[in-house]
Write a protein that binds this DNA or RNA. Structure first.
Lengths: 415, 415
DNA sequence: GCAAGTTTATAAATATTTTTATTAATGTCC
DNA sequence: GGACATTAATAAAAATATTTATAAACTTGC
């Protein structure tokens, strides 16, 4: 009887397997290929074979073999020769960006945004529904599904080429199990199970703040930094904590509820039922509330000449502050100071190398930088403060969506 | 000319190499051997070859080969056959505990303790100097060196068999660079450099709280838990944070300054210069202060009948509380409540699965458990609180020393 | 008490990876 | 402009690891 040895040397597990267990239990070659792709994905410039082999700890012959296989599979392309001072010039390689795509979806209280990204995380399609209002209902969930379906259709991307969809949703989310606890919590199974059944590609979920942190980690100012805070400062206040190079989820993925730390001196009642949460003093909604309280005390503002008082939102206040409106400046500074105090305390606990202000307030660096720093001085210990940089996100308004897209690559260990 | 192929199949890098770069840049076989040793070190019971191979992801022939080499090197010993229900009975293997040793040293404000551990982290020698008082001086440092030298001599352990010494020292420490910032900061180089020059074995350093966290992680109630807080509640208050299975050091290793978060409602001036730090309300010294303040207000206590007021320390207060002294119980409960409130806030931020109270207060669970829980209820969000267990360390008073010893194995990736 | 089933351990065959040697492609120096 | 230095890529040889087959050591069930 002839012996039945394995003759095909192709890996049994596909690089783009849609089964997460495969990814964690893959053979050495596929794991190394994944690392090569991830390295090229992270790298700004194209890389040579020796450089790749050094980084992924492979000998040049094996590295060459795997890279050639990736070229055969159309995942990697040669992009020219590298200019060097001496020696034979090496060939450069990069990812073929159009080989595969990922989808980022962000579900906020108001607004639904989806983008399709190629492997290099360049946006190839984008759509937003500003009229969307998040409700914990079947109808709302169906709306989301319909939105995704039409978006995917309109993007004209081959669905077989979609690696997966990452969803960032507001509220408490267990990223590991895929359950959402504040919205769409009426489902029998997890939110991930629900979506996975609806689409041919795999679905991953995390909360909006963690997804923003991912964006900062891969494309923003937390790149190559092992310990960072990424603030999601918009209407509310959240924080993604990066420690030892990883976003901290905690035991159920609930980590980051910075808005519900009681550090303030105020006694305002928070939505969570407690009093004095940072979130009652810091964030867009708190800013609006402060604005209206001051107006009630007969203070005045340039803003009142342009808009009815009830319709003024925190973005109006920010704009007014940057144009010199005294009240807007005052309350924004005040908010920044309180935020700084809270940050200084948490800085003592976690010793980050950088604090990045993201969210809708990211462009407000000119107004907020100094007041936050002043606040931090009041609470932070000098040693950890000295080596912590305060900075504002520069990724732009689609940061969270891009982070949601990156969630796919991250889970597939391709970035 | 004869070709010079490598003929010796022994690894070029020794398993117990004293060069940390070797460890991070080792060949596959040595890395796997290290994993085998670490697995056996962590495992309660002895393991079979198939079990080991499965865990470290090796085929049985290669696993067998490596294990046999470890046996040849006297690092592993066979310990009998395993009883099974069916099939051939496999041989069991375990670490030869006396093959090598590690030293744990803890330098506190008052007291110096050193223990020698075998590979299974059983104590083989222990010595303490209670008269020691930590000062930031050359003389004090020389005292420490002399203490270590006589201790190592007295322990009668072959110095060549000592893998290294782990030091836990109070104050801010950068574990990566080996610098100590509060004590012995007058040195030209790092504290690690200083000690490394004095001894033949390598030296590792971290602060006392992180080392306590390590102990809890490897031998205590944080074992197999990915997200935990380990409180160092003694005279002062510190916290080791374990996230994603790793102790968080932060950018400079300063993470964990829980005592300097301003969460309290009090306005007491802290040693750090700020007001309202948790540490001014929680911890042994705060407890003593509270005790004396109450006595000044003419309250009374059983303790006063036994000891002069000035000599009463927090351990006396704890003992009195457990014997029913009303004042001691009251102020201890009060402290527990404040600690609980502070913990609840940080729990919102990091979502740990377990909070372990360690340090000198670890035996005070009966007095503190309920008051801490009550405090946490006031500040923690319900979802993260629900899944977080509060517990007290049961390792014992030498926890930190054992953690310092484990620091050696940890850095050598042998645990 | 012996066949059948199960698991460990070893041996042989096959597959993979690395090391070393060789060849190729460049720049530099005299 | 050619010897020489330098780096890349490929080829061949050696080392290492895995798969498969087989033997050995057990239990169980009849």
């Amino acid at each position: 009887m002839p012996r039945n040895y394995k003759t095909d040397n192709k890996p049994a597990v596909d690089l783009f397997s849609r089964n997460i267990d495969d990814i964690n239990n893959q053979n050495r070659q596929v794991a190394k290929k994944r690392k090569i792709v991830a390295l090229l994905n992270r790298s700004e410039e194209d890389l040579t074979i020796p450089a790749i082999c050094k980084k992924v700890k492979l000998s040049i012959p094996t590295g060459t073999k795997l890279i050639n296989e990736l070229i055969d599979d159309k995942i990697i392309v040669e992009s020219g020769k590298k200019e060097t001072d001496n020696g034979r010039r090496p060939a450069l390689y990069r990812i073929d960006p159009e080989y595969a795509y990922s989808i980022g979806l962000v579900i906020l209280l108001k607004g639904l945004s989806l983008s399709v990204y190629n492997l290099e995380m360049d946006e190839v399609y984008s759509i937003t529904d500003d009229s969307f209002v998040l409700e914990n209902s079947t109808e709302c969930l169906e709306k989301v599904v319909a939105f995704i379906q039409t978006a995917v259709d309109k993007s004209k991307v081959n669905q077989q080429r979609i690696l997966g969809m990452g969803i960032g949703i507001t509220g408490r989310v267990n990223a590991r199990t895929g359950y959402s606890y504040n919205y769409f919590n009426f489902l029998d199974g997890s939110l991930v199970d629900f979506f996975t059944e609806k689409f041919v590609f795999p679905v991953y979920v995390d909360n909006d703040t963690h997804v923003l942190g991912l964006a900062e980690q891969y494309f923003g100012k937390a790149k190559n930094i092992q310990n960072a805070f990424v603030l999601n400062l918009s209407g509310g206040l959240g924080m993604a904590i990066i420690s030892n190079g990883e976003i901290i989820g905690g035991e159920q993925g609930f980590a980051g509820e910075f808005g519900h730390i009681q550090l303030g001196d105020s006694n305002r009642l928070c939505l969570c039922g407690k009093r004095g949460c940072v979130g009652t003093e810091v964030g867009g909604h708190a800013l609006e509330r402060n604005f209206h309280e001051h107006i009630e005390k007969n203070e005045t503002s340039l803003l009142l000449t342009k808009k009815e008082e009830e319709k003024i939102d925190y973005l109006d206040i920010l704009r007014a502050a940057s144009k010199g409106d005294a009240l807007s400046i005052s309350i924004t500074h005040n908010m920044g100071f309180k935020l700084g105090k809270a940050l200084g305390n948490v800085l003592n606990l976690l010793n980050p190398g950088v604090i990045i202000v993201g969210g809708k307030f990211a462009p407000a660096d000119a107004i907020l930088m100094d007041s936050i720093k002043a606040g931090m001085l009041h609470t932070a210990l000098s040693l950890p403060l000295r080596s912590c940089e305060l900075t504002f996100s520069s990724i732009g308004s689609d940061a969270a969506i891009k982070g949601a897209g990156a969630l796919v690559l991250s889970r597939m260990q391709l970035i």
